[in-house]
Design a protein around this nucleic acid. Structure first.
Lengths: 129, 129
DNA sequence: GCTTGACTTAGAGTCCACTCCAAGTGATAT
DNA sequence: ATATCACTTGGAGTGGACTCTAAGTCAAGC
């Protein structure tokens, strides 16, 4: 699959796909004889995985480390797992912060509901009075 | 409360506190006669609110808009509420992405557990055989 | 009276993660 | 053969959110 179609399929710009490969966030992509990228299934799996991780805010550097270890072979499985566990922990922490903020936003929004409905009541009184 | 103590209390650098005020992310802070910031309770409430929002990734610009409206008075309550609702929606969306990624990480970590325990079994066999 | 230390400002610099640009190649359509 | 178009590269530029620097003010302690 050419980069344009990958870009469309996964909604990632071609520039970003090239950038991901350049910095080692995905392993080197399969190429045609003329050097043009021709993503195979394995390449697409990486793209999809990285898209998922990035959409959750997992840092590029952690993913680069992960991919680097992956390319060094099976011996690195334990180190790779450690990276995933660490990233998971950070993810959970961020989600907890977000949950706190969500509750606070809900509270404030409810408060605005109350304020605004009471001001409507007052205007009704005015109109009536 | 002087900026140094606010910085310590809320774990936000003095530079960041000044930056927040400069760009309008919090309303102008109370000052002593000589111009030195002396945060009162209202100021601290803003600091705490902004810290909470930023820790969840709510964008600075949305918060600047919110604070701007707040300073324009009660007429802006509806617009402020709209901002909160919009930010809440974005927050929920990000949390959903994160939930998806979390599940995927859990799956991969479990997978590493399986791979690695099977490789331990093999080495046990080796040692025994 | 001089040093120390916390504060002030405007503005420059940094980091991350892209995003864009210029110059060039190579296959296809007219 | 010439234009079009998608692709290639290295490197420069951008946007968001800080973070740091330089130059200066002010109050307290020796």
């Amino acid at each position: 699959m050419l980069i344009a179609e990958v870009s469309k399929t996964y909604d990632i710009s071609a520039d970003t796909l090239r950038y991901y490969e350049r910095v080692g966030l995905i392993p080197a992509v399969n190429r045609r004889d003329n050097g043009i990228r021709d993503y195979n299934e394995g390449d697409l799996n990486w793209v999809e995985f990285i898209k998922c991780m990035r959409s959750a805010g997992v840092q590029v550097e952690a993913l680069i480390d992960y991919v680097g270890l992956y390319q060094q072979g099976d011996d690195t499985a334990a180190a790779r797992k450690d990276i995933l566990i660490e990233q998971r922990a950070q993810l959970v922490e961020r989600m907890e912060d977000m949950q706190t903020t969500l509750e606070r936003l809900d509270y404030k929004i409810e408060n605005y509901d109350r304020i605004m409905s009471s001001s409507i009541d007052m205007s009704k009184c005015k109109n009536k009075g």
